[in-house]
């Protein structure tokens, strides 16, 4: 009996670049269809949330707040809101999708296919990035109906959006693997992401908190402040005191690479995927 691989078997087992690309595309498309098929549940609510923020804080209260850093309040706030949309939507898509696939059992489809673990993680993360940018894009389009934005540094706008989307889609993928129930994803969102985003200067600049030491310290030590500060600089050209955009950009890049690598490593290890 011949225990070695036969040329026929090897030829049938060969995975061409085209086949590999189709497999990756199929998984990415599945992840996209998952949320695009049900926009009332996935796309519309976060957009409505942000539009309400714009109407209430930007328009109704914004006129009373005057200018921040030389910009009308609504303009000051918009980059923060955009970043918030991108962070949350990039995170939610892989987090829910990965857990749902584990819970439903259809993760078996990917694990038993010729997709590599790196392909699985990156296709899922890429779909998360797409959702974050899609929701961010719609929010931006809606916001531009109400006010102008100067887009002072367009390459930095694109780089920061992409890096932050990759970072949080990667984190979402990790959470989707880690959690043992739906509540885990909600808990991370409620107790970690929401406070960090809200205290990260979406609605205010750290300078506005002078005289409120604990809140100012929380904001200054919050890494999200620098992500949002960098994006605000990219969009408005506004550099707040002690908020150079470059540490924020470096942090975004570090988080993007770190989270992507973490998610891939967990897939390769079979963390909560294999027994």
């Amino acid at each position: 009996m011949n225990a070695g691989a036969t040329p026929e078997a090897l030829s049938k087992a060969r995975i061409s670049l085209r086949e590999s690309a189709i497999a990756f595309y199929t998984l990415w498309k599945r992840e996209m269809v998952r949320y695009l098929k049900d926009p009332l549940d996935t796309i519309v609510p976060p957009i409505l949330d942000v539009i309400l923020f714009i109407l209430i804080f930007g328009i109704a209260l914004g006129v009373r707040l005057g200018e921040v850093g030389g910009f009308p309040y609504i303009q000051f706030m918009l980059p923060g809101l955009l970043m918030m949309s991108v962070i949350m939507n990039s995170f939610y898509n892989p987090a829910y999708s990965v857990f749902q696939s584990r819970w439903q059992g259809n993760i078996f489809d990917f694990l038993s296919s010729p997709l590599s673990y790196t392909q699985m993680a990156t296709a899922i993360i890429l779909a998360g990035v797409c959702r974050g940018l899609l929701v961010g894009g719609i929010v931006l389009a809606a916001a531009l109906l109400l006010t102008d934005l100067p887009f002072a540094h367009p390459p930095l706008v694109i780089a920061e959006l992409l890096l932050v989307a990759v970072a949080f889609a990667g984190f979402g993928c990790v959470v989707g693997l880690w959690t043992k129930g739906w509540d885990g994803v909600n808990a991370i969102s409620l107790f970690l992401l929401d406070p960090l985003v809200m205290l990260g200067g979406v609605f205010y600049s750290p300078e506005m908190l002078e005289g409120v030491p604990p809140l100012e310290a929380l904001t200054r030590w919050n890494p999200f402040t620098y992500l949002i500060g960098t994006f605000r600089y990219a969009v408005l050209g506004l550099e707040l005191e002690g908020m150079s955009p470059w540490p924020g950009l470096a942090l975004s890049a570090l988080l993007a690479v770190g989270m992507l690598a973490w998610a891939i490593a967990l897939f390769r290890r079979g963390y909560h995927l294999k027994s």
């Binding site: 011949n2 225990a3 070695g4 691989a5 036969t6 078997a9 090897l10 049938k12 087992a13 060969r14 995975i15 599945r30 269809v33 998952r34 098929k37 049900d38 749902q100 696939s101 439903q104 059992g105 259809n106 078996f108 489809d109 038993s112 296919s113 010729p114 997709l115 590599s116």
Partner: peptide
Amino acid sequence: FGLDAVRDYRKVHKLVGVMPQEEALDSWF
């Protein structure tokens, strides 16, 4: 067919079709 199921998992999966015991259908959407 001579290929290691762990090291060459992608090639092995191409040669094998598995029907699991539990229902594992992507039925959500």
